[in-house]
Design a binder for these strands. Structure first.
Length: 210
DNA sequence: ATCCCGAGGG
DNA sequence: CCCTCTGGAT
């Protein structure tokens, strides 16, 4: 995809949705971090359903430690990978209290040192809580970038680096959310809705297929 | 049978 | 590089 096509792609997505935001429901920084940790191999709808009854009384890592591992594991058991997530979440909360005064740190190194937090989760937190121009590459962003030809790569890190080079600076801050929403609602994995896609004429796959 | 806002360990 | 963890939706 040419730089001009890339520019057009984001102009259209930005025009259609000027203020894209996560569809995860959260109120405190810790809740965002926790919700992103829970989102692995799960839909955000499922995460919101699991966290809704919990979050009114679960606003800080101290609250999670007070709730305890067994109760938290039961509360999130409808999510994929729930046992590993519950264990990571409690270890993460403990570490936040011990090393970060119960607050969510704002550097990649500190975030990725937390149990259950890898590059993708750190990128989301840095973007949403701290306004960094990071692009978290999840399954949706990976698929949309490769399908359209916007940024191709065989690993999430390769796609992330290609995106950081391809996306024009004015769009970097929100590129992650525009691409993820496009992937979730239009450029779906099984049956992409090319007929209603705003960027089909710019897309390598859309030009050929359907 | 495949996919969902992945991470840790071997 | 690979494997495992995991249930719900489609």
């Amino acid at each position: 995809m040419t730089p001009d096509q890339c520019q057009q792609l984001f102009e259209r997505l930005a025009h259609a949705n000027p203020h894209p935001a996560t569809e995860l429901v959260w109120h405190t920084p810790f809740q965002l971090l926790l919700a992103v940790l829970l989102s692995a191999q799960s839909t955000d709808v499922g995460v919101n359903r699991a966290t809704a009854p919990l979050f009114p009384t679960l606003q800080t890592p101290q609250d999670l430690l007070a709730l305890g591992l067994a109760a938290f594991e039961q509360a999130i058991r409808t999510l994929g990978l729930y046992r590993a997530k519950a264990r990571h979440a409690l270890e993460m909360a403990k570490l936040l209290v011990e090393r970060h005064e119960g607050r969510v740190p704002g550097t990649r190194g500190e975030l990725e040192a937390l149990p259950g937090v890898g590059r993708k989760t750190a990128n989301v937190v840095l973007n949403i809580l701290y306004g960094h121009p990071t692009i978290a590459v999840d399954t949706h962003v990976f698929r949309v970038a490769n399908r359209t030809g916007l940024a191709c790569g065989t690993t999430p890190l390769a796609v992330e680096q290609a995106l950081l080079r391809a996306v024009p600076a004015p769009f970097l801050q929100h590129a992650h959310h525009w691409l993820i929403l496009q992937g979730r609602h239009v450029c779906q994995a099984r049956a992409p809705r090319c007929a209603v896609c705003l960027i089909q004429d710019l897309c390598d796959t859309g030009k050929i297929h359907v």
